[in-house]
Structure formats: C-alpha cells, structure tokens
Design a protein around this nucleic acid. Structure first.
Lengths: 138, 138
DNA sequence: CGTAATTGCGTTATGGTATAACGTGTGCCA
DNA sequence: TGGCACACGTTATACCATAACGCAATTACG
C-alpha cells in the first residue's frame, strides 16, 4: 500500500504520512506545507512534521534543501543510510522542480578542496540555481 | 556604475555599520545578531539590517550562508560585482569559522554537471560542513 | 530652474521557519 | 516489575524575513 513502508518496513505512522506527502509532490515542500496537507490525518503542530522529517533525513529518504528551507524525497534510493556527502541538486527557479544528481567528478573536486586546507569534510551542501531544460524550451 | 564606487567609502551609513559589524567578526552573524550589535548606533528594526545586507550582498562585499541563515564578509575582494557562482565555503562546526575558497576545478565540475542536464546555471551554493584544521589539532 | 523618479530610511505589523519543555503511552527486557 | 528508550501530543516561544506605509534626500533631465 505504501511503497516506503515496503522499502523500509519500519517507518512510524507519522513518518509514513510525511514521506507520502513528499513522494507525491513534484516540487520540494516546506514543513508547514506538509503540516497543512496532513491536518486531515490528525496533524496539529509543526513538531509532528519536524520530528518525522528529522528521522527521514537521518534514514536518507529525504533531503533538506538549505537554500529553500524545504524538503524533497530522495530520487536516488542509494542514499539510504548514507550521510549527504555526495549529492547535488539543480533547482529550477521557474518551475520549482529539483533534480538530484551524483557526480564523481564533483565529489572529487570537493574532497580535494577540503584536503587542501586540512578540512575534515562531514557533509556538503551543493545546490545549483538556474533554469531547467524544460523551462528553457518553453 | 564603476566597481570602485562600491568600495566601502561609498556605502551609506547603515550599510557601513553592517559591513563593519561583519568585518569585525571572525564568524558569520545572523541578521538579528547584527541588529543587537547596532542598537547602540540607533538601529531599531530588522529591516534596517536586511536592507543593508541586500545591498552588500549585491555589491559582492558580503555572502549569505544558506545552511546557517547567516552572513559573512567576503574574504576575497575579487567577488565584488560578481554573482556568487564560483565560491565555496568551508564551515567548521566546532569553532564556527568559515573559510572562503575559489576553485577552478570545482567550478568546472559544477558547470559540466549543469550542462549535462541542460540546466542554465545562474548561481551555486556550495557549503562544506566539517571540522577545520585548527580544531582538529586542538 | 522645477518637478518627476529614484533611493535610502524609519516604523508597525505580520508571516514563515524551527525548537524548548513537559507530559503521556507503549514496548522491551534485565 | 521496574527502568529504559522511543514515538507522540501540546503549548509556548524563539528565530528568520518581508509587506506596506510614509517621509526625506538626491538625481535626472525637459
């Protein structure tokens, strides 16, 4: 019934509801937008959303987009269980769509920059802003 | 407008105050922290800070760190007049210090990733999280 | 000149994002 | 069976950012 319960088997009810809200959206959602969508399922307070999001991010099922203060479902199942070290997001400022990518070349460049200054890299936030191909052609 | 007209000498009073607050800080400052520091100079409302910050960011004298909701003075004067396309920040989660870097290799990797998907790149947010060399050694 | 347009500024009010603190219920298992 | 870990619900609060109004100073230019 819920594909993410099938994948992970162990999401709580609130986590599943939040996960479904994100999976069903083509664009990132803010925590408060999720809250509004889930009021009909009994959600009443932001913390119910934030607590679920914290776990989903921890599980690697959801990513937080820092430049939008919003959240997206992972498009790339291999993120599960990993820290967000190696993913980048292309965010279209016209349509709001987000494309998630993995690039060895970019990861290597980031790693090497960190090394150059003796910086212990734990996570990286890489968010490209611009216009996607579809919107350019339209 | 010639780029030299953007040097600090041509800033308005509020812009200079905000710029000085940021230049004098070793770590990024939030808008509200700046507000508190500038109350003794007559600042009363967040908008006074945000308006100055908008201009300073536009001039390339200040960068906004998306993953912190905070602002830093540019450490790299060549940013003046440029969009933020080519800069990355290494943010130490122990001491809060931020190191700004420019990396041709990283810029190229970002550009090439954008091209691969037909994405028109307008700006990029690259923020590394981890521990700086100084804190590691301590 | 004079006047319109622009820009910076101050203020009040409001909206959007995120967490603190406290208490309840449940399942586990030593 | 008592302690622990964890998810959950609720209220309150803190933090981040902008809307909308009006005024004053400066600039553009016919």
């Amino acid at each position: 019934m819920n594909k993410h319960e099938n994948l992970t088997g162990d999401l709580t009810k609130n986590q599943s509801l939040v996960m479904n809200a994100l999976s069903g959206s083509k664009t990132p959602l803010s925590a408060y937008t999720i809250l509004d969508e889930l009021r009909e399922y009994g959600f009443r307070a932001p913390l119910q959303v934030y607590r679920a999001l914290d776990k989903l991010v921890e599980f690697g099922l959801v990513h937080r987009l820092e430049s939008l203060n919003a959240f997206v479902a992972c498009q790339h199942p291999s993120c599960e269980g990993k820290k967000r070290e190696s993913v980048l997001f292309a965010i279209c400022e016209k349509c709001g769509n987000v494309q998630e990518m993995v690039s060895e070349r970019l990861i290597e460049a980031v790693r090497s920059n960190a090394e150059d200054i003796g910086f212990s890299l734990e996570a990286s936030v890489i968010e490209l802003r611009g216009v996607c191909q579809t919107c350019k052609e339209a």
